[in-house]
Design a protein around this nucleic acid. Structure first.
Length: 284
DNA sequence: ATGGGATCCTGTGAGC
DNA sequence: TGCTCACAGGATCCCA
């Protein structure tokens, strides 16, 4: 389940593989992945054909490939999405199921595709879309996101928590409040900040907000350098797994002992998500 | 206006 | 061993 660290690590792994490369051919095997992002299919994905990759951007869990002529391919991995670069040989040998879109690309001078970029997504909670330029993508989609969790300031966190009546868990999962946190890192951040997931943001003391801010920044930074958390499906652009899952304190550990105090970790659905916390360390 | 619930979808693993 | 079925999750839509 890719969250900010996984998408950022993916972005970094794709930069050396894609920058300056040209897309020669695109094959789209499922048209409905184009509409899953809630944007009308008013632009053909095929527009990216012949595009040369200028930059890879990220906001929250969203990734965007910007071409030299301005066109943009926006990607959301959903739950099980993967964006893989394969050599021609690998692409020929491997049987890839759920490969919904495949780009052939290579160096602009060659005109011979040497590699394949594959978007696969078994559960199809993800999607791709295109835009004529970054400005349009920002206006249509990314403007609806809160600030990116990696660059979140303490002041902004305090401001966006102050009036909320929802639980902390629901608030932090809301991408329009903060972009990039998902079920894993919300649970991990709340544990690190010793805050119970069902607390209301309005009940937080200034010190709590400080701890939460520090926890979010620290955990995300560590997870990015560890290559993210590979639970089931997540792979980076080279097809490699992230190692941060071995360092989870609470996520996926319900019924096990808290690594801080030894109390058995509890689990329940909060904001319709499986939530794990330590009843001793995390105060209501 | 706001939040909660249903919905989409398929691979995995527990249980019989 | 093989089958069934609940479960996992992000974002969107609908309704209270």
């Amino acid at each position: 389940m890719p969250e900010l660290p996984e998408v950022e690590h993916l972005r970094r792994s794709l930069v050396p593989l894609l920058l300056g490369k040209q897309f020669f051919h695109v094959s789209l095997n499922r048209e409905d992945i184009l509409t899953r992002l809630g944007v009308k299919r008013n632009l053909q994905l095929a527009l990216l054909k012949d595009g040369v990759v200028r930059a890879l951007h990220r906001c929250g869990k969203n990734l965007a490939l910007e071409m030299c002529d301005g066109r943009v391919l926006a990607v959301h991995l959903g739950m099980s999405g993967q964006f893989l670069v394969l050599s021609a040989g690998e692409h020929k040998d491997r049987v890839l199921t759920h490969a919904h879109a495949v780009w052939q690309f290579g160096a602009p001078s060659q005109k011979t595709p040497a590699h394949y970029l594959v978007f696969r997504d078994p559960r199809r909670f993800g999607g791709i879309t295109s835009a004529p330029d970054m400005e349009t993508l920002l206006r249509l989609r990314w403007s609806k996101l809160g600030p990116d969790a990696l660059s979140l300031t303490h002041e902004f966190l305090a401001a966006c928590l102050i009036s909320k009546v929802r639980t902390l868990k629901a608030t932090l999962l809301d991408q329009s409040v903060i972009a990039g946190l998902g079920n894993i890192y919300v649970d991990e951040a709340l544990f690190a900040a010793r805050l119970h997931p069902t607390r209301t943001p309005a009940s937080l003391e200034p010190g709590d907000v400080l701890h939460l801010h520090r926890a979010i920044r620290t955990i995300l930074a560590r997870a990015v350098s560890a290559g993210g958390s590979s639970i089931r499906d997540y792979l980076d652009g080279k097809g490699e797994r992230g190692s941060y899952a071995t360092r989870h304190q609470v996520y996926g550990r319900a019924g096990a002992a808290c690594r801080r105090c030894g109390t058995i970790l509890e689990s329940a659905a909060v904001a319709q998500r499986t939530t794990v916390w330590c009843p001793q360390c995390q105060f209501i």
